[in-house]
Write a protein that binds this DNA or RNA. Sequence first.
DNA 1: TGCGGCTATTG
DNA 2: CACAATAGCCGCAG
Length: 572
Amino acid sequence: MILPFTQGDTIAIAVADGVGAALAADGDATLELDATQMSAALAEIEQTLSPRWIWWSTDTARFLVADGLRPARCWDLDAVHRLLVGGWRGGAGRIWAHRRGLDTSELPQVAAPDLFSQPVDDDPAEALRPDGHLDPAWIDGLWRSDVGHLRTWAALALDVHHWQVDELERLPERPAASGTARSESAAALLCAELEADGLPIDVAEAERIIASFIGPRPRDGADEARLAAERDHLVLQHLPGPLGDLDLRNPAGVKSLLRRVGIEVPDTRAWRLERLRGEHEIVDALLTWRKAERISTTFGYRWLDQHVGPDGRLRGQWSPSDGAAGRMTATAGLHNMPAELRPAIVAEPGHVFVRADLGQIEPRILAAVSNDDALAAATWDDDMYAPVAARLGVTRDVAKVAVLGAMYGQTTGHGAVALRGLESAYPTAMAHLEAAARQAERGDDLRTRGGRLVRMSSNEPDAEPGDEPERAARSRAAARGRYGRNAMVQGAAAEFFKTWAAIVRARCAPIDAHIVLCLHDELLLHSLTDCADVAAQIVTDGVQEASHRWAGGTEVRFVADTSVIARWSDAK
DNA sequence: TGCGGCTATTG
DNA sequence: CACAATAGCCGCAG
């Protein structure tokens, strides 16, 4: 096929069912594709030119991944929008309104179909409405539209891309923002791949582990209820007197249950009950019950059935930057799977896992974002809490709690004394955190080192002054302060992590090793056994490349612990 | 039926 | 039990 593009092009791509349009950024070269040529043409463009693909949203990435394509580079307008504007909301209408400086508080909606309206078959001819907004009906029509409309869609993507590039370069004091935009885009693409690939799981092993908590798989609903009642009885049998309608799933009921055996607690959380195991035999039974109940409801047979495919892969939905500071999130328990289930995460025959986690990532990030020379010097130690402890004249554990407390905004408790030591030993880092907290308390927006806006203004219900007690207002301001203070560290750590992940993804493209899990500071790769040593080297070297790219110019050292293992639980 | 509270799990 | 997340069940208001 004769391609109209040249090496180094940036190419906007818009796809629908069986139709596609690709448009080069620096000219008017276009390629219109139908179902018969699309896969082959896109693969050829990728292979020969390796362009940076521009698309409106990760839906396009999902489409291409489902088609067997693994693009090397992209620019995800949605991901970059969230970086620039903060929050989790995106979508073409909002992106466009922001690019044109239009009011985003009331974006045009597609009229909801009701009993009286006729289904509309004719889509609007123009993408833009007279008021400048994108017409949502036109966007909806894209999916059943012709290639000409997709060409317009791609051209609009190019327009937004150019504008985003300019915006990022104009951000004051954020020279790395354009790089963040690229790694955030890569992370979004990686999310599409994680959704498609899934995490290898040994279902038989998972069922053995689940059975060890709640017994074999129930035959039906009645059987399940009977087994649950038996578990309840193991707790309730310790209780003297009549049971009434006591429900172990009701915290108030558990509280009164404990009161009946002479135990008074403000709440019934496990860490609190843990210390009361010796008080009465029912406490131990209750804690065992809680563990089983957790497996039964959240990580039991239903969980396996719902999220594991016939290919033995556990799949969830991935978001590249949900929430406060832009960490990756995942559903289906991929981010909070109990440690007891990890032995079931097993590499397939002929494969191994390459697992690596960043060591002490948050305090190292703090040293980088605050430009604190003394704290940066501490990062040259493999265990940076050791030099901090020496400098403060406290034990390592106290130093660790103090540093974490400073980043989370703790003001009371054991770490509070050492906190004052931190202020004199590392004044630059502490002042950086304090400034972020003050700004957030006022309700002013923050921006991470890599350029992500952390919105403080839009998150709160706007209360009239005086219609809330002074104490509550102060407590909420303090909460905002802790949130903002932590977002500077957690958000920058998320940016560093995604830079690392993007590098690893790119370097592993030529070999048979793929990222199958991202866990905030940990990467898990599924690798052909023969490639594992190469993959492990890529992962380890990737940390150095990420620190050069993300924290170039600072004297902060980042470290990773890498191992090649057969199952997830084999890691140290 | 939707929402806040409580609980558990992870980084 | 600080910061973040997903997810389940319960009680309660509408």
